[in-house]
């Protein structure tokens, strides 16, 4: 009972602080902008902990965050092994292969307006399909290990990336291309010095979308068969054993990996497209 009371009091107090902060004169400052969502996140954790303890929810339904944190801390080697298997080997290699080949294909079809007019709608169409369903096929073709996961990731990121790159290559303005012509720049010079840099905001948009897709592909593909390590494998087997604290720890790893991956790409984007209006000011 005291746990329930505590979490209710904490919730009301945090709510009050957040409302005061958000409506104060300082709501535009960086510190407050960081503090408010942090307080909200902490409140969710505290209320979760309080409710689970107060209502005595069995740990096979919802473990308290403290149990998850304890499990996380004690099983670091396993989590690291799964992370390497799924993220570094599966997702990252597939991401590099898929995005790289999509950019190359986009440049290859760049000179043919006919192919672009055909590939763009088809690519857009395929990008909306549940490509994740190819996972069982890839597992059959490339075996249980990370190669099949990388193949699923390639299939998932290829078309969003292709569509974005083709759109990006068309983003430079006619006036700019004319200027390159007056400099008597060749096709490749125009491509490298004008059109590819101008395409960068689009390419990075594709790269950012693909970070999430890559992780989803690598994790879900493991549900269809994997060696005895990997984040998807661990989640599905520990769920079967009702060891939910381990599942939540694995989900925490996936969340951290996903947001760090996205953040890293966004950081590179800031360096590369520093000239773009969305990055200035």
């Amino acid at each position: 009972m005291s746990w329930l009371l505590f979490s209710a009091v904490f919730w009301v107090a945090a709510l009050w602080v957040n409302i005061r902060l958000a409506n104060s004169a300082y709501h535009e400052t960086r510190a407050v902008r960081l503090a408010v969502p942090t307080i909200f996140g902490i409140t969710v954790l505290v209320v979760w902990e309080g409710l689970v303890r107060g209502l005595q929810v069995p740990p096979v339904i919802l473990p308290p965050p403290s149990a998850v944190a304890a499990k996380f801390a004690t099983s670091l080697p396993i989590l690291w092994e799964d992370f390497v298997q799924t993220f570094v080997k599966g997702a990252l290699s597939g991401y590099v292969l898929g995005c790289g080949s999509a950019v190359l294909v986009a440049i290859a079809i760049d000179r043919s307006e006919f192919l672009q007019r055909g590939l763009l709608p088809v690519g857009n169409f395929i990008a909306a399909l549940p490509i994740i369903g190819t996972a069982p096929i890839m597992v059959m073709w490339f075996g249980f290990d990370w190669q099949s996961k990388a193949a699923v990731v390639v299939a998932m990121v290829f078309f969003p990336m292709l569509v974005n790159t083709v759109q990006g290559l068309a983003a430079s303005e006619a006036m700019q291309r004319d200027l390159m012509k007056t400099y008597s720049a060749s096709y490749w010079q125009t491509l490298l010095k004008l059109r590819l840099p101008a395409a960068m905001p689009f390419i990075f948009n594709g790269l950012k979308i693909s970070t999430t897709l890559a992780l989803i592909g690598a994790i879900v593909a493991e549900f269809f068969g994997s060696p005895i390590r990997g984040m998807g494998f661990r989640i599905s087997t520990e769920v079967g054993r009702l060891a939910l604290d381990m599942v939540w720890a694995e989900i925490a790893v996936a969340a951290i990996a996903g947001s760090v991956f996205y953040g890293a790409v966004a950081l590179v984007e800031r360096g590369v497209t520093f000239w773009h209006p969305s990055q200035r000011g």
């Binding site: 957040n18 408010v36 909200f40 999430t212 989640i235 599905s236 996936a254 996903g258």
Partner: peptide, 21 residues
């Protein structure tokens, strides 16, 4: 200010991993 950063951050994480659970 409380929810929006989390909603945006949730787009970068593979939330589908919770599905089996």
């Amino acid at each position: 200010m409380s929810v929006m950063p989390w909603a945006i951050a949730s787009q970068t994480i593979p939330i589908i991993a919770i599905a089996p659970m």
